[in-house]
Amino acid sequence: MMGNQLRDVNPDGKVVPLTTLFPGEKAKIVALGHGIRGQRHFRTMGLMEGKTVEIIATQPARGPVVINVEGTQIAIGWGIARHILIQKI
C-alpha cells in the first residue's frame, strides 16, 4: 500500500521502530505496522508513509512518544509506536 511513496526511502538507511528515536531527532515514516487499531487510524491522524516526523518528547518507563507530523502533535502509546517503522534523517 502507498507503494509510490516508498520510492522516497533511502535503500541504504536502517529501518528502525519509532521508539528508538530521541527527542529532537527527525525521521521519515517507512511503514505503519499492524498496530492494534490498524493503519487506517494512523492515516486519519496524519501518520502516513513518506511523511517526516520530529520527536518532541518521550516519557520514561515505555510511556507514550509525542511526535510532530506537519505541524500536528500526536501522542502515541509505546506499544503502538514500536510498530511504526522509520528511517532517521
Binding site: 492494534i36 491522524m45 507514550p64 509525542v66 502533535q73 500526536i74 501522542a75 502515541i76 502509546g77 503502538i80
Partner: peptide
Amino acid sequence: GESPELLLEVPP
C-alpha cells in the same frame, strides 16, 4: 477485554 494504547492528538 483489550486495553489499547494511547493515540491522541495534542492540539496547539
